[in-house]
């Protein structure tokens, strides 16, 4: 226990986080590249076509991982905000700050691919499908967090306000999701939801699993990398950063 706590405490110090993340990051980049490459080739070229939707179902391999990630990133952003608010660990806030645009990008990917997928399945670019609607609301939540952080002139206030909003949002996400699902069933679903389908054969869901894992590794690697930049930016006047910069030239 003691060892774990001291490790967490060290992780909370920007200098240590910078050093540890440098060792972890390459592995996550490598894993992300390999998994996404394998998943893409498998999903695009080798997985069998769907009996109902033909080859358009191959959009699932980008739509679903992006949707998973969009929700997970919001949760991890709120957890980082909680850690920042309770234990005043600055690295947590730096991570939360770089997670928000990343999550918004993932939400956009899942919305865009969902809309494009709608053309061959529903015959229209936009359908007020339960999943697409919740994703759209999630995008607004992300934009709100990003805008609120940027609106404050003092960085610390912006960080704390964004943390509070992320926590309020994460409590609301399940409520929004269930109410939208309920609303959609009330107004009679058009045909069938894109992603809820009869059990998929292994050749179809194995690449999906690989893609999901690859996207998660990509998220971790990108977050680590941008958090490192954020550390350098905010700690630019600290001695260790100046020594680091001096050593490079």
């Amino acid at each position: 226990m003691g060892k774990i706590w001291s490790f967490i405490h060290k992780l909370g110090s920007p200098k240590w986080f910078y050093a540890i993340s440098a060792r972890l990051m390459p592995w996550f980049w490598l894993a992300a590249a390999v998994l996404i490459l394998v998943g893409s080739v498998w999903g695009l070229a080798f997985a069998p076509a769907d009996y109902q939707q033909g080859n358009s179902f191959r959009i699932i391999y980008v739509h679903v991982p992006a949707a998973f990630l969009a929700q997970s990133i919001f949760v991890s952003m709120a957890v980082a905000g909680l850690i920042f608010m309770v234990w005043k660990i600055k690295v947590a806030d730096m991570a939360a700050a770089v997670m928000a645009p990343l999550g918004a990008a993932m939400t956009f990917i899942s919305l865009f691919s969902g809309a494009v997928w709608g053309v061959p399945t529903w015959g229209t670019w936009w359908m007020w499908d339960a999943r697409l609607t919740s994703m759209l609301i999630l995008l607004f939540l992300y934009l709100g967090v990003i805008a609120l952080r940027g609106a404050f002139s003092s960085r610390d206030s912006g960080s704390r306000a964004a943390s509070v909003l992320a926590m309020v949002g994460v409590i609301n996400i399940p409520i929004i999701k269930y109410s939208v699902d309920w609303w959609y069933t009330l107004h009679q679903p058009a045909t069938f939801s894109v992603t809820s389908r009869p059990a998929m054969p292994l050749e179809m869901w194995a690449p999906l699993l690989i893609m999901v894992l690859g996207f998660y590794c990509f998220f971790i690697a990108a977050t680590l990398m941008r958090t490192r930049s954020e550390i350098l930016r905010r700690e630019a006047n600290k001695r260790w950063v100046r020594e680091l910069a001096g050593g490079l030239s």
């Binding site: 609301i137 607004f140 939540l141 934009l143 709100g144 805008a147 609120l148 609106a151 909003l165 309020v168 949002g169 609301n172 409520i175 929004i176 109410s179 939208v180 309920w182 609303w183």
Partner: peptide
């Protein structure tokens, strides 16, 4: 803060509206 306020609050209003 006016426009920002609606951006923050409106998504959270959706369950009540539904």
């Amino acid at each position: 803060g006016g426009v920002l306020l609606s951006l923050l609050v409106l998504p959270l209003y959706i369950p009540v509206l539904i």
